[in-house]
Each structure stands twice: as C-alpha cells, then as structure tokens.
Design a protein around this nucleic acid. Structure first.
Lengths: 192, 192
DNA sequence: CGCCACCCACTTACTTATTGGTAAGTAACC
DNA sequence: GGTTACTTACCAATAAGTAAGTGGGTGGCG
C-alpha cells in the first residue's frame, strides 16, 4: 500500500521541518517527527533528504533565498529608512507571534558547534545577507538624515541585528512585551 | 574496585557540565560525556543528579548565584557607569574567548521549549537578575549624566542585554571582531 | 584501643526509547 | 518497463534512567 502521490513532498517536508527547527532547534526534532506530521514513514524523508544535514542545509539556504527576495521587494516597494526598518522588525515579530519561534540566525548560532559543517557555512551566508541589507539601509538612512549613529554603518548593522536576535530570544522567557520594549528603545537610540 | 574517593564530585560534575552546556547547549551533551571527562561511570552522575533536569536546574541556579555575587562585588568596588558597563561586557568577552561559549541566557532562550520546566523557571530568574542589575546601573548612570537614553531604564536595559546576547552568538559565525564592533557601536549609541 | 556495622560514593548490569541511516521490496504512473 | 515515491524491515549507536552489588572510611560501642 503506497500513499497517495504528492507533487511537492519535498517542500512540505521543508515546511514541517522549518516549524520544528525554529521552535526547538535543529537537534530538537527528528525524521520521525516530520514523518508523523506528514503521515508518512521516516524512510520517506531519507528518500528526499538522505542525511539530516542535507535537510539542514536546505532549510538554511531556503531561508537565505527568501530573505534576499524579501530584501529586493522591500527595497523596490518601500521608501524611507523607518518604514523599511519596521518591515524588517515585522519579520522578527512574525517569528514571535507564530508560536514563539526564534529567528534562524539565533538558532544556528546557538547550536553552531553541533550542526554539520555545511550548515555552518550556510549560516554564515544567511547572516551575511541580512547584515549586508541592514548596512545598506542604515547608510542610505543616515545620508538622508533619517537615522543617526556614529562610525561605520556595518557596525550599526550588527548592533541592530544582534539586538533583534537577542530580543526574540529574551521574549521567550519574559513574554512578547519584552520584544516590543526592546524595539521601541532601539528606535529611540537610533533617532536623530 | 572503587575509584579514589573525591570530596567535591558534585561541583566537579557541574564544572564539566557547564563547559559542555555553554558550548553545545543542554541537549548537546549527555551523562556519558561528563562521566568520561570525570573518569567515572555515567551512573555515578545519576547518583549526584538523579535526572538530567536536576543537573540543568543546578547549572542555572549556580549561574544566577554567581551573577548576584558578581553584581554585589562590582557595585561595591567599581564606581561610575562606564567602568561598570565594561566589567559587564567583560563577562561576555570571557565566554567568547573561553572556547566560543555562549552566555547562559542565550542558550536557555534558544532551547527554551526543549528544556524541563524547572529549568525554564530558573532561566527566568537568571534573566531577571541580570536585567535588574542593568536597569539599576543605567538609571544611576543617567542620573549622573554619564549615559544618555530616552524612556525607562528598564527598556534600555533590555536593549543592552539583548544586544550583548545576540553579539556573542553572531561572533560564532562571524568571528570575535563582530562582538567587539557591536560593543563599540552600542557604547556610541549610549554616549551622551 | 580495637572492632564492627553502617553509609557514602560509587560500579556493574541492565532496560526502554529514540536516533540517524540502509537495503530491499512494491505500487502507481509515464 | 523503467523511473518515482514511497513502505517494510532492519541496523548500530546513544540516550536517560534503574536496581542491585561493592568497597573503603568512619562513628560509635564495648
């Protein structure tokens, strides 16, 4: 008895895995979990992703591609530093509201020493993509006089990235108010 | 054949467990790892900490007590906001330099949904202790005109805490320069 | 002072559950 | 008829945890 044939099992697997991943970390779920949710045997997951590391890399790569597309759309459709900043914050807010997820970078960094090498490299790529966008946004924002900070925009970008990453995490034990408070105060620090 | 009797096995276990914990997370080590490092059988660890959750809670509680003692010493011995701030940053710097560890709060938050309930409560206690100290330090610093921020000191405290937590994490994939850059820019943002 | 029983800090030996992963078979579809 | 997408049936490794045994040190008793 074979199950009904699906066309997009691979992306369904990624969807389910991603939910577990952002909630419980890479080491916090197994092929069994995904298989059960999908109504399939765990060997079927191995058919699409032979080793768990393959799944992990696919997860991170998909996240990066998604962010790059988001960045392109945002840059094209949203003008002004603060609207863009708010759109960026909204990404993290969505993680938080959708079942206390974390941002992928935060999870990848936390588990860094226990994930396969390929995932570590992919993690680096994701972090870099995010920081590059933030750097561009901050540079343009300062040139337009919308935002104020000293030093290189690269440095301010890491501060913003690190703060949001930390804020979603702290919100797990202190509640989502902690996240909003952090964002509000971060904005105040950046206002000219 | 029994091994040579130790007097402080319990704290030796905690020391070894803490190193694994801050490097690889709570789910990233087992009683086997600790036992091997200590030169003992894993059942011996169960003798001191019946369940892994007991070890976990002990780890977090010890961290909290350690921080409270640090805070008391710091408040007594170090005067001025920026020296205190630097002393606080030094804690995170030590994590980073001592084998790419993370700060405990960051790990606890990342694994929040996969750790025992008792650990979650202990995590809340640790985070609260840290933020309370930061809040007091920032309030006093602003009253003395040494530091500048808008709104409640509680909010600024979460920003500082979240930023440092995020910064140690990002440093794992981007290198420790990323941490120092973040701290430098955070200081600039807080300078009057 | 000597002896002995007890207890502490383990070891040995085990269980059950879960993990990632593999090999071979099978049904549906092109 | 072959490829695709699975299932069935395994595997060895590792996890947390338990029960019973053991040996050395110590306190108390005569």
């Amino acid at each position: 008895m074979t199950a009904t044939r699906r066309s997009d099992t691979k992306s369904e697997i990624l969807d389910i895995a991603e939910r577990y991943w952002l909630r419980q970390g890479y080491n916090g779920f197994s092929y069994q979990h995904i298989a059960q949710d999908l109504g399939v045997k765990s060997a079927a997951i191995h058919y699409h992703f032979p080793a768990k590391g393959d799944l992990g890399v696919a997860l991170v790569e998909r996240m990066r591609r998604r962010f790059v597309r988001w960045a392109e759309r945002t840059d094209a459709e949203i003008v002004g530093f603060w609207p863009r900043f708010d759109a960026f914050v909204a990404i993290y807010e969505a993680y938080l509201d959708d079942g206390k997820k974390l941002c992928p970078s935060g999870i990848l960094d936390a588990e860094y020493h226990t994930i396969p090498e390929g995932m570590q490299e992919a993690a680096h790529g994701l972090t870099t993509a995010i920081l590059r966008w933030l750097t561009r946004a901050l540079r343009a924002g300062r040139e337009a006089g919308e935002v104020s900070f000293n030093g290189e925009p690269e440095g301010a970008a890491i501060v913003v990235g690190a703060t949001l990453q930390g804020a979603v995490q702290i919100a797990r034990s202190l509640g989502r108010d902690a996240f909003h408070t952090t964002v509000e105060h971060l904005k105040k620090l950046l206002h000219p």
